[in-house]
Structures are given as C-alpha cells and as structure tokens.
C-alpha cells in the first residue's frame, strides 16, 4: 500500500506524505550532523595541509618580495628610459654634438660630480652638462677618460641666464644652496614668481634655451639698484644618473 502511495505521488511529480514527514523530522539533526562533519573535515584538512600551506606561504612571500623588487627595478629603469628619451629629444645646435655620459661619482660638499667621459671624447673645460630636466653644470676639469662637473648649485659657478617673459630679463646666475640658485639682475623690472629661467646664450660654450629652473622669490637690492632673484633648480642633483655634454 505504501509502495502504491509512493508510486502515485511520484507519478504526480511529488514526494509521498510519509517521505515528506520523515525528511521533515530528520532534516534538523541531519543539518547539525552535516555542519559538524563539514567543520571537522575543514579542521582536519587544515591540520593535514598545515605544513604544505606553511611552505606555500613562505614561497608566496618570497615571490611577493621578488615581485616588489622587480617592480622597483622596472620603475627605476622606466624613469631612466624617460630621462634618456627627454635627453634625446633635446636638439643640439648644428655646430655642437651630444656626448652621453654616466655619473660615476658625486661630491655634494664641493657641488661637483664625476662623469665617465673626458678629453678623449672631445670634452673640454666650460662645456655645459645637461640632463633631461635641464642644465646640470659645466665641465670644470677634463681628464683623459673622466671629467669633473661643477654643478649649478655651486656658488663658484657664474652662468648667464634669462628669465623668460615680456620683457626677457638677463642676469648672472650662481648657486646659493643645494636647492636654491641666486640671480642678480639690473633695473627695477617686475619679475613674476613662477617664470621659467633658461640659459641666455651669451656665452661661448653654453647655448640659449637650456632650462635652469623657475623663479621662486624676487628681492630689491636698493643699495646697488639691482634686483636679486631666487630660482628653484629644475634638477634634483641626487637623482641624476645619465647626462650628456654638449661639445
């Protein structure tokens, strides 16, 4: 009889009442048992796999560290590529040639750097050294295969520069501190803060238009009837790695 009821219910696409009753009574404890088994299985799996997971964790941590280092290297190289592209974009005057060089030494106290090109490459004293973002300095000493470069942040340097704008103001720029240049200009023309400062071209060695920095302050020097302009250099000297010399 039970079989007939069951068959009839199935033919109607339903479960028979007895099955429904049994499943209704059994489902709650079965759920508890099922959950307990599931948690137990997970716990045992965790215990069983602990060693493997620990090793996997160590390996992934090492891989992550490797990836970070790789990314840092990638970023650094990308920065160098960008800098080289910018340097490459600089169009030298027809009579001048670019000699690319690597910085092989730095003397922050003396405001100078050493590059791996020298007299054998046609490098001479006073030639300008340029990086992607602007003027680095001038050659101070040219040995056979290396040269010392006096940075624009050096108080000893004197370069003819121009503040771009209307009118164009020309003066002599020299280093004041590691992050500040000082430029003396005659007259009382107003100087706008933020104006770009470039090389003036009034020089046998340094062509016009090479970026130096931007004006950050302007002070009147009434005693001499002149104006002193302070300039933020375009370059951060510590971040330089590739430069070129305009010979």
């Amino acid at each position: 009889m039970l079989g007939q009821i069951q068959t009839a219910a199935r033919n109607n696409g339903r479960s028979d009442p007895v099955t429904l009753l049994i499943q209704g009574l059994v489902a709650p404890p079965a759920q508890v048992v099922s959950n307990s088994l599931s948690y137990t299985e997970k716990f045992l799996k965790g215990v069983r796999d602990a060693d493997m997971l620990s090793r996997q964790n160590e390996r992934l941590t090492a891989e992550l560290e490797g990836m970070k280092q790789y990314q840092e290297t990638l970023d650094r190289l990308q920065g160098q590529i960008d800098a080289l592209r910018e340097m490459n974009d600089y169009v030298a005057p027809p009579t001048r040639k670019k000699v690319y060089a690597n910085i092989i030494g730095q003397s922050p106290g003396q405001n100078s750097i050493i590059i791996d090109r020298g007299a054998n490459d046609g490098i001479k004293k006073y030639q300008p050294v340029i990086a992607a973002k602007g003027l680095v300095g001038i050659i101070e000493v040219a040995d056979a295969n290396r040269s010392r470069v006096l940075l624009i942040t050096s108080p000893a340097i004197k370069i003819s520069a121009a503040i771009e704008g209307e009118p164009r103001i020309i003066g002599i720029i020299s280093g004041a501190t590691a992050t500040r240049l000082s430029m003396g200009v005659f007259g009382s023309t107003d100087v706008l803060v933020g104006s770009p400062v470039v090389t003036s071209g009034i020089s046998e060695y340094i062509p016009a238009g090479i970026r130096i920095g931007i004006v950050i302050e302007s002070v009147d020097d009434e005693k001499f009837g002149a104006k002193r302009v302070f300039v933020l250099p375009s370059l951060v000297m510590g971040e330089l790695s590739e430069v070129f010399v305009l010979k």
Partner: peptide
C-alpha cells in the same frame, strides 16, 4: 526500512 526509504527518497517497499 521506512526511515531509510524516506531519507533516501528511494523505493520504500523493497527497503522495508
């Protein structure tokens, strides 16, 4: 047998 058939949703008759 009845319970087994019920929980399994199987043919209750033969199990019972």
């Amino acid at each position: 047998g009845l319970l087994h058939g019920g929980v399994a949703g199987a043919d209750t008759s033969s199990l019972t």
